[in-house]
Design a protein around this nucleic acid. Sequence first.
DNA 1: AATGAATGAGACTTCATTCAT
DNA 2: AATGAATGAAGTCTCATTCAT
Lengths: 197, 197, 197, 197
Amino acid sequence: MRRGQDGEDTSARERILTAAENLFSESGFEATPTSRIAELAGVPKGLVHYYFRRKADLLVALVDRLPDQDIRPEHVVLAGDVATSLRRLLAELDRWQESSPLLRSLLWREADTHHVVREALQRRFRRLVELIREVISAAYDPAVRSDVDSAAELLALAVSYQHSIARHASDVEQGRVRMERELSFIADALTLGAGAD
Amino acid sequence: MRRGQDGEDTSARERILTAAENLFSESGFEATPTSRIAELAGVPKGLVHYYFRRKADLLVALVDRLPDQDIRPEHVVLAGDVATSLRRLLAELDRWQESSPLLRSLLWREADTHHVVREALQRRFRRLVELIREVISAAYDPAVRSDVDSAAELLALAVSYQHSIARHASDVEQGRVRMERELSFIADALTLGAGAD
Amino acid sequence: MRRGQDGEDTSARERILTAAENLFSESGFEATPTSRIAELAGVPKGLVHYYFRRKADLLVALVDRLPDQDIRPEHVVLAGDVATSLRRLLAELDRWQESSPLLRSLLWREADTHHVVREALQRRFRRLVELIREVISAAYDPAVRSDVDSAAELLALAVSYQHSIARHASDVEQGRVRMERELSFIADALTLGAGAD
Amino acid sequence: MRRGQDGEDTSARERILTAAENLFSESGFEATPTSRIAELAGVPKGLVHYYFRRKADLLVALVDRLPDQDIRPEHVVLAGDVATSLRRLLAELDRWQESSPLLRSLLWREADTHHVVREALQRRFRRLVELIREVISAAYDPAVRSDVDSAAELLALAVSYQHSIARHASDVEQGRVRMERELSFIADALTLGAGAD
DNA sequence: AATGAATGAGACTTCATTCAT
DNA sequence: AATGAATGAAGTCTCATTCAT
C-alpha cells in the first residue's frame, strides 16, 4: 500500500482522511458512519479504527491536515491599486481552497459542537482578515487604520460566506458576481474615504 | 390540553418544539435523540412521534414557526442619517432574534443537509438584505443603486455571521463592537460615494 | 351513518370489517395496522377499537361473517352425468367465493396461528368435501363409497389450492384449465372404476 | 468460529437460521421478533443483524438453504406397478421433508407477501409435479399423456396440502390414511383408464 | 500491522390500546 | 355513541467500538 517516498498511490491513512472529508462535508459528521468512510476509501472497516480509535479523531486529523495559508501578500499586491490587488488575492484564495471541499462547509457546520474545529475556524478567519488587511495596507498607503480593519473583515465575511448562501452549481457564478460587486464597493470606499479626509 | 385555566400553560406540542429548538441548537440535529427532546419537554417519548411522525418533521415545524420579520422600515429610518437608521434597524433585529436561539446557529448548521432549512435560510437572508436596502434608500436619497445593493449585502453578512465567529458569551460584546465598526464603514462609504459622484 | 334498515350506505361496523378483510388478505393480519383499516373504512381510528376492542376480534368477526355455503346439491346435479354435475357445482362455488377475497388467502394464512380461523377453515373444507361427495353420489349411483371420498377430497384440494399456486391475474385462467382437466380425470376415474367393478 | 475441534458445532450463522426457521414456522414471519431468534440461537441481538441486515433477508437465506429435491425416479420405480412406485416416492419425500419443518407451513404462509418465497414455492411445486409424472410414466408405459399430468398434479396437491389441513400431531396419521386412499384412487384411475382405452 | 467478526447500547419508529371528553 | 389525544411497550435496525487472530 505504501510507496517509497511520495508515490502516486496514496497511503491508506490518507485515503481514509480524504474519504472522511468528502463524506463529512456531504452529510455532516454525525450522519456519516465510519463504515461508509472505509467503503469509500476502499479499506476494511477495522482499519479506520486502527488509525483513528475514536471517530472524532478523524475530525482532529482533518483539521491538522488543513493546508497552510501560505499566500504571500507581496505576490498579489499592485501598489496603488487596491481593487486589483484584492481581486488577485481572492483569485489566489480560490485556487487554494479548491483542494478542500471541507473548508466550504464542514468547518462551519461542526464548529458549534467540536471545539477543535471551532478553534481552527477562528484561527483561519483571523488569518484571512489579516491577509486582506495586509494587502489593503500594502496597496494603499494613506489608509486610515480603522477603516482598513472593517473593510478587511467585511470582505473576509463575504469570502467565507460563499459556502452557505451559494452552495449549488447554479449559484456559484452568481456568488462570484456578488463578491466582485462587494469588493468594488469596499475598494471604492477606501479610496474615496482617503480622498475625503 | 394541559391548560390550567388561562390557557397560558403552553401546549405539549409547543413544549416539544421548544425543547427541540434548544437541543438542536446546542448539539445539532443528528446528535439530539428524540428521547432527550421528550425528556426536556416533560412528555412521554411516544408523544413526540405522535405529533411529528419523523424526526425531520420537527425541523420543518421549527422552520414554519420562525417569527415573521415584521419590522417596518418607516419605524427605524431617520431621514438623512444612514448610520443612525441602520443602527436602529440592527437594534430592532436584535430584539427580534433574541427569542430564537435557533436562528443563530441551527439554521446555518443544518442548511447543508435539509433543503427545507436551506430554503428558509435563503428566504430570510434575502429578506434581510432587502430590509437593509430599504432603510438605506429611505434614509439616503441620492444613493446610487448598485452601491446600495452591495452595502446591504455586506451588512447582512455581518449581521448573519454573528452566529459562528462569535458564539460564546465572552465574544458577544466583541462582535457587537465589530459590527458597529462595519456599519460605520458602510455608512461612510455611502455618504462619501454620493459626494464623490 | 346508519340507514333505516338495510340502506345502501353500509354501517361503519360493516365498512370496518370489509376494510379489514381486504387489508388482511393483502398483507396478512400482523402486518396490517388498525389505523390503516380505519383509514380505508373512512372512519376515525378510535372507532375501530370501539367496535372491536382487540385487533384479533376483527378476525373473529370476519370468520363469523363468512357467508354460509348454502349451495343445494339438487340444484346442480344432472343425474347420470358426474362431470357436468361437478362442473356446475364448481361454477356455483366460484360465484359464491367471488364475494370474499378473504377466503382465497387469508384463511389459509392465518390458520396456523389463530385457532378460530383454523377451525373455520377446517369446517369449511369438510363441508366442501361433503358437498362434492353428495354431488358425485347423487349424479352417480353405483359409486363405491371409498372412491367417492377420495375423489371428493382430491377435487376439494384442487379447488382450495387455487389461491396459493395461482395467485395473479395471468395465472387464473391457467388455474381454471388445470382444474377442468383434473375434474375430468376424476369424473372419468369414477365412471371407469364403476364399469371395471 | 465457535467450533470445538470436530467442526460439528454449527456456526452462529447457521444457528440463527435454524432458530428463525423454527420460530417463523411456529408464529409466522411478522409475529416473530428478531430478538426471540437471537435468544433461541443463543447469540446477542446484534449478531442477527450483522449476518442478515434486514429481517426479510432471513427469509431469503432460508429459501436458499432449502435442500434440493434430489430424489432419482429410478430409485423408487417398480416397473408395472404404479401404486407401489408412487408409495415409495411418497415415502422418500416424507423422509426428505422431515428435516424441514419450514416447508410444511412457512412457505405457504409467507408466499402471499414475499415474492422470494412465492417463487421458491412455485418452483418446488413444479418440481414435485414433474417428479410424480416421471414416476408414473416410468412405472406405467402406455399411459395417456394428459391423464398423467392431471394425476401428477392431483397427487402433488395432496402431498403439499398436508400442511394446512392436518397440522397437529393427532391429525398426522389421519392425513396419511387420506393420502393412501387418494394415491390408490389415482393409481387405479390410471390403470383402468388405460384398460378402457 | 491489519482485519472482520462480534457486541450491546441506543436510535427511530410503529402500534395496539386506553381514556377523557 | 364516538373520537382523537395520549401512552409505553416493543420492534427493527444502526453503529461505534472492541478484540481475537
